[in-house]
Each structure stands twice: as structure tokens, then as C-alpha cells.
């Protein structure tokens, strides 16, 4: 799936060099102030707002011809939007593509952090629909910016308090808010809360791009990230209480698949590369085909 050259009708990685420089400045500012949402002049991309235009612009600003790009959506390389974005960069940047987390230098993702631990030098780019963790508590951008500036986060905890009062637990399952380096409260994009522990102390650079909302933010390597909680209701990164039915993994995030109209279901790794790598290494799950098929 490697394309050696990029389409000569477009500048490398689609955006013009001025725009890429502008985005890089925003990225550097974001890295310098972890968790702070940097406004940037998001460009109109040839894909719809809300479909990863922020992530695509950040990736475009980071890519060099030697890069090896992996694109995932819901943890999988073969979901349609991941395919579409990967093809966009193969055409406009001519970079090599890969499905292997370990081989990728830049990974663009929607809704997941790969199971395989990232390493120094890798860049993980998140697509972000709503960058503002306070948005559904306070719809006004002018007011939420003031709240961040003054670290006025009481309201965020009121939301968690209300959850516990009503449901007996913090009822946020994804886009679970985090506090970065004891300062900014940040939306980690709609990853399941299961992935939250991977945000902190991560050797890779993590960049977050929100195109429609015109914001970029970042976590430099080894940043302290804490999921918001209460002492007596600690953060709980739960997942389905199953093992993967294909590779037997017990510690990976699982998709639930309905297999017939009788309510039968199976659970499989959401991270397709992780699952395949394990199966290739001989791991087996409950519904694995017999050995002959391996």
C-alpha cells in the first residue's frame, strides 16, 4: 500500500507551506503550554468538517517524505473514514503507509489510542470534534476561555458530582476530562475512558486537532495527565469483562459484535493491528478458527 510519489498537482501534504508553518507554530505553542487550546486559522479541507479536518491539518503540518503513516478510526485501519484519510495522504504526500503501530512514525486516530505502547519519536494525532471540555456546561466560548485562564474549574466537578448523585457513579464513558500538569483541564477527544491512562507519561508526542472549532492542543512526551475524579469515587477505566474471542487478549479494549438475531454476541479487539499481531504470534481466543487456518 505504499505510494512512492505524491500528486504533482498539489503541494506536499496538500497544504501550502505558509499554512503548514502557521499550523506548526500553533503546535509548538501547544507543546509549550500542555493542555492549552491554541486558536489557529483552520483551513477548509476537501473533506467535511467533523470528519477529521483538524487531525488532517495537524498531520499535514508534521509529515515529511520519510514518514510512515498509520490511520485508524475506532482502532481499525480498515474503517471507511480511515481508508479515506490514508488515501488522501498517499495521494497528496506520497508517504508510505502502514498498519503496524510499531512501524509508524505518525499515527492519526479517531476515538482510540493504540494498545501497543508508543515509543519516543512517534507522533499520535487525534481528531477532535469539540475541544472544549466545559462546552456542555457552558456554551459560550468567551466564558469558557475565561474559565480556563482563571483555572476556574469548580463547574467541571459539579458535573461529576451530579453524575454520582444521580447514577451512583461518574457517568462519563468517553471524552472523559483530564487535568494536565496540574493546570489545564482538557478533553482527550472521544476516546473511551479505558484509554485515558495511556495519555499520561507517554513517550510519544500527542497532538490534538479540531478543524471546525479552530483549536490545536498538545501533550508533550511524559506529561502528567490525571483523569478527574473524587477521592471516594476514583476514576475507573473499565472495559467489557471479557477476553478477545479472536486472540484471547484480556487487557485490550473490545468491540461487541452481534452475531445472530438470538442475542448471541462476541467480543473482539477494537485495535485490529494489535489483534492480528497477537494471532500471528499464535494467540487464540474462544472463537478462533482451528489451527489449520493459521
Amino acid at each position: 500500500m505504499n505510494a512512492p510519489h505524491h500528486d504533482p498537482d498539489y503541494n506536499f501534504a496538500y497544504l501550502d507551506e505558509q499554512t503548514k508553518r502557521m499550523i506548526r507554530r500553533a503546535i509548538l505553542k501547544g507543546i509549550a503550554v500542555p493542555g492549552y487550546q491554541v486558536p489557529f486559522a483552520s483551513r477548509e479541507m476537501p473533506m467535511p468538517y467533523g470528519w477529521g479536518t483538524g487531525g488532517v491539518q495537524v498531520t499535514a503540518a508534521c509529515l515529511v517524505p520519510e514518514d510512515r503513516l498509520k490511520v485508524i478510526d475506532q482502532g481499525a485501519d480498515d474503517t471507511t473514514n480511515a481508508v479515506s484519510i490514508r488515501r488522501f495522504f498517499q495521494r497528496t504526500a506520497g508517504v508510505a503507509a502502514t498498519e503496524k503501530t510499531t512501524e509508524a512514525s505518525v499515527i492519526q486516530t479517531r476515538h482510540r489510542i493504540p494498545e501497543t505502547p508508543l515509543t519516543e519519536g512517534q507522533i499520535l494525532v487525534y481528531q477532535v470534534p469539540i475541544p472544549e471540555p466545559l462546552r456542555f456546561l457552558e456554551p459560550r466560548e468567551s466564558e469558557t476561555r475565561r474559565m480556563h485562564a482563571l483555572a476556574d474549574y469548580g463547574l467541571m466537578h459539579v458535573k461529576l458530582y451530579e453524575d454520582i448523585a444521580r447514577h451512583g457513579a461518574i457517568a462519563t464513558a468517553y471524552a472523559y476530562p483530564v487535568e494536565v500538569e496540574g493546570r489545564y483541564v482538557m478533553d482527550p477527544s472521544p476516546i473511551p475512558k479505558f484509554d485515558n491512562p495511556k495519555l499520561g507519561d507517554n513517550p510519544a508526542i500527542q497532538l490534538f486537532g479540531a478543524g471546525r472549532e479552530q483549536r490545536i492542543y498538545a501533550l508533550p512526551p511524559y506529561t502528567a495527565v490525571r483523569s478527574l475524579d473524587f477521592e471516594d469515587y476514583p476514576f475507573d477505566p473499565s472495559k467489557a469483562d471479557h477476553d478477545c474471542d479472536l486472540c484471547g487478549a484480556s487487557g485490550s479494549y473490545l468491540d461487541e459484535v452481534i452475531t445472530d438475531d438470538q442475542g448471541s454476541r462476541m467480543f473482539v479487539c477494537s485495535d485490529t493491528d494489535y489483534c492480528e499481531t497477537r494471532r500471528d504470534a499464535g494467540h487464540r481466543g474462544r472463537f478462533s478458527p482451528p489451527e489449520v487456518q493459521a
Partner: peptide, 18 residues
């Protein structure tokens, strides 16, 4: 809720025990 209203100031100054 009433409890959340009363609790907000406590949480704003760092109370973290539900």
C-alpha cells in the same frame, strides 16, 4: 441539584471527597 449548588464553592476551592 441543590447539593451540587451548595457543593460548587467547596469543589472550586479544591474539595475532592464526594
Amino acid at each position: 441539584s441543590a447539593g451540587g449548588n451548595v457543593g460548587e464553592r467547596l469543589m472550586a476551592v479544591g474539595a475532592r471527597n464526594y
